[in-house]
Computed example of a mutant assay.
Amino acid sequence: MPVILRYQSFKFFFYSNEGNPLEPAHVHVRAAGSEAKFWLSPEVALARNHGFDARTVRVLLAVVEENRKLLEDAWHDYFA
């Protein structure tokens, strides 16, 4: 489970086994027992949320958008 980015108490990562066939590029975010998944393309979007409040999801969405290139590059480097 490679961690790509840390922001405050949040870990941004992907699972090394993302399914077969491989899902489109996305990132998981975890902190304090909660986890969310964000699609990276064609645009950044929330895929699912388990435990984060709406305000936190908005903050996480902004962080993913700001770091989209880093996250996509890490995804493609790992799964290429």
Rank of each mutant, 00 (worst) to 15 (best):
L60T: 03
F79E: 02
E65P: 02
Y15K: 08
A80S: 15
M1D: 15
D53I: 11
N49A: 14
F14C: 13
N49W: 03
E66N: 12
A47H: 02
G51T: 06
H76V: 08
R58G: 13
V27Y: 05
V3C: 15
L60I: 04
R6K: 14
E43R: 05
L71T: 01
S41V: 08
V64P: 05
L61D: 15
W75Q: 01
A25C: 09
E23S: 09
F52D: 04
A36M: 06
L46V: 06
Y7T: 05
S41L: 08
A54Q: 05
R55D: 13
N17E: 14
N17R: 11
V64K: 00
E66Y: 04
G19K: 06
V59K: 02
H26R: 06
G33E: 14
A62Y: 02
S16I: 14
Y7A: 04
V59S: 06
F79Y: 13
A80F: 07
V3W: 12
A31E: 01
A74Y: 02
R58S: 13
D73P: 14
N20P: 04
Y7L: 14
V29S: 00
T56D: 00
H26A: 03
E43A: 10
M1E: 11
E65H: 00
S16Q: 14
L71F: 14
A47D: 02
K11M: 07
R30M: 11
H50R: 10
F38M: 00
L5G: 03
P2Y: 10
K69M: 11
A47W: 00
V59F: 00
A62G: 13
Y78V: 11
G33H: 10
E23C: 07
E23L: 12
P2N: 10
A62M: 08
R6N: 09
R68V: 14
L5F: 08
V3S: 12
P24D: 12
L70R: 15
F10P: 04
P2C: 06
R68A: 14
F10I: 07
Y7V: 09
N17H: 11
H28K: 14
L60P: 08
P21W: 04
T56P: 07
L46E: 08
E35H: 01
K37C: 11
L60Y: 01
H26N: 05
G33D: 12
A74G: 12
P21H: 08
R58V: 12
A54K: 08
R30Q: 12
V63E: 07
K37N: 07
R48Q: 09
R48K: 13
Y7G: 03
V27N: 03
E65C: 03
S41A: 13
K11G: 13
Q8C: 12
V63A: 04
